[in-house]
Nucleic acid binder design. Structure first.
Length: 483
RNA sequence: CGGGACGUAGCGCAGUCCGGUAGCGCACUGCAAUGGGGUUGCAGGGGUCGCGGGUUCAAAUCCCGCCGUCCCGACCA
């Protein structure tokens, strides 16, 4: 096991807390290769739960999985001007194979648009082939200078959806549908509230027409871009000659979308719910939703408690609850409690002789509150209810925190600056639409426009003026320092 | 790539100034007791002191070179 000391409190050093939590909960470890990360079983289990939920959602909306290769001919990347400009600086390039210099270097995919649309060009002939809705689960490599476990690593795991449509409207509808799907996943599964909206041009995906994103606010009041969905327009279709014959018999370029979420979400989960004890994993994503700690003295008691635990486990499993019995010997119950709390298990059952005699278990919730004896009668349905409630409570608490750390209608430029420099979260303010102003604000405050928010997130009264220049505002935008 | 710090057991460190048997805490292994919130006791295992060279009877320690890591700045899911 890892060391037994408490974590650095979040208030003391948030970043140290984050790193220590990951080590202590054994979610990941540093690899021998700089910037890379080993995802350990505890961390990978969360990712697997995420994958399972998202994969179901993608399939329910008509997508199929496929797999495209890791290596991309370097020339492919160059075919779309903005794309190559955006990604070339951070690619890893393979120059040798089998001991020989390659005729053409191979890029290790930083994202797969180019190779996928090269293939789509072969597969799509007619409007009858559209829409083409494909997703892939893959690893990608981006040669980052500054890395953080889960949040930004040189190699990371993700899914990337790539679709082709006959019309711009269809592509836009797909882009927005996925944005909503992501939001739903983040709220309902991760219990992580997000703002949705459009990115400004400077934050747009390299090669996209428009980029939309989900933005979450972490406990240190920094924003996390949690997922993006791009309307690629016909940029890649033109670069890769992805054309189809329309119903009217005309040759047209397809309209593409691409969208992705990554293992970064695990980092978002940690920084949304974690506390000074460790991880708090929302029950819907937890590897184990309930851990049973048997309590005993003599050997005879141990056997009886384990047997009772098995029965409880079976009942919970029947109700669809994921359960683990911690029957390890030589570790005191208290030590087990701390360990499972660090790992974020939502519910703990303590099961000892007194409970068995009384037909109860002692329930402890990871989110706090007093321990509570539960009757074994109907324990399955009861825990299903508890899972739903904790899921709801976590989302609620995170939403309240975000709103508490949001600032609408700063009166003056100085108030805007003060809020950001004082460690504030999301600031809603008017913007004149000038990219130079956006850059200047970033320069001075380190904050960027996270998103031009969707209608439901906008302030009831739209700001009339740009917070920086006083010129007429083209939109209300959300500013924050970001990961 | 620029500025700063640091490399000694799995982790955290002391020892380096002033050369002389490689240590401490935690973790780990075994046994026993303990067991409803981080358990004690006893006994153990584990080190090319980042790498290479030099000085010296003798180098973790002094000198030279290299490598690596972390933090701060320019780029980013």
């Amino acid at each position: 096991m890892a060391d037994n000391k408490a974590l650095t409190p979040r208030a003391t050093d948030f970043s140290a807390w984050y790193n220590e939590l990951i080590m202590k909960a054994q979610l990941a470890d540093y690899s021998p290769v700089r910037g890379c990360m080993v995802i350990r079983p505890n961390g990978y289990a969360i990712w697997e739960q995420m994958q399972a939920a998202l994969d179901r959602m993608f399939k329910d909306t008509g997508h199929q999985n496929a797999y495209f290769p890791l290596f991309i001919p370097q020339s492919f990347l160059a075919r779309e001007a903005e794309h190559v400009e955006g990604f070339a600086p951070e690619t890893a390039v393979v120059t040798h194979g089998g001991g020989k210099l390659l005729d053409e270097p191979l890029v290790v995919r930083p994202t797969s648009e180019t190779i996928i649309y090269a293939m789509y060009a072969k597969w799509i002939q007619s409007y009858r082939d559209l829409p083409l809705l494909i997703n892939q689960w893959a690893n990608v490599v981006r040669w980052e200078l500054r890395t953080r476990l889960f949040l930004r690593t040189t190699e990371f795991l993700w899914q990337e959806g790539h679709t082709a449509h006959a019309t711009e409207a269809e592509a836009e509808a797909e882009t927005l549908m996925i944005l909503g799907l992501y939001r739903n996943f983040m709220e309902q599964w991760m219990a992580m509230p997000v703002l949705t909206g459009r990115k400004t041009n400077s934050e747009r995906f390299a090669g996209a027409l428009r980029t939309y994103s989900c933005e979450a606010l972490m406990q240190d009041n920094k924003a996390l871009q949690a997922g993006t969905s791009h309307n690629l327009g016909q940029n890649f279709a033109r670069a890769f000659e992805v054309r189809y014959q329309s119903q009217e018999g005309k040759e047209e370029y397809v309209w593409n979308t691409s969208w992705g979420v990554s293992t970064r979400l695990v980092g978002g989960l940690i920084m949304t719910h974690g506390d000074d004890t460790g991880l708090i994993c929302p029950p819907r994503l937890a590897q184990y939703q309930v851990v049973i700690v048997p309590i005993y003295k003599a050997d005879a008691e141990r056997a009886a408690m384990l047997e009772a635990a098995d029965k409880v486990k079976a009942e919970l499993q029947t109700a669809g609850i994921r359960v683990h019995i911690d029957g390890r010997e030589g570790i005191k119950p208290g030590a087990k409690y701390y360990e499972w709390e660090t790992r974020g298990v939502p519910f703990r059952f303590e099961l000892g002789p007194r409970d068995v005699a009384g037909g109860t278990v002692m329930l402890a919730r990871r989110t706090g509150g007093a321990k509570e004896p539960l009757s074994l009668e109907g324990i399955g349905p009861r825990m299903v209810q508890e899972v739903g409630r904790m899921q709801h409570d976590l989302l609620n608490a995170a939403t309240l925190r975000r709103e508490h750390n949001s600032f609408r209608h700063p009166e003056t430029k100085q108030a805007f600056i003060d809020y950001l420099e004082g460690g504030g979260g999301f600031v809603y303010a008017g913007w004149c639409g000038d990219p130079a102003v956006e850059a200047e604000i970033k320069e001075q405050t380190k904050a960027t426009i996270r998103v031009i928010p969707d209608a439901e997130f906008r302030s009831s009264e739209a700001p009339a003026k740009c917070i920086w220049t006083g010129r007429p505002a083209v939109a209300e935008v959300v500013w924050a320092r970001a990961y």
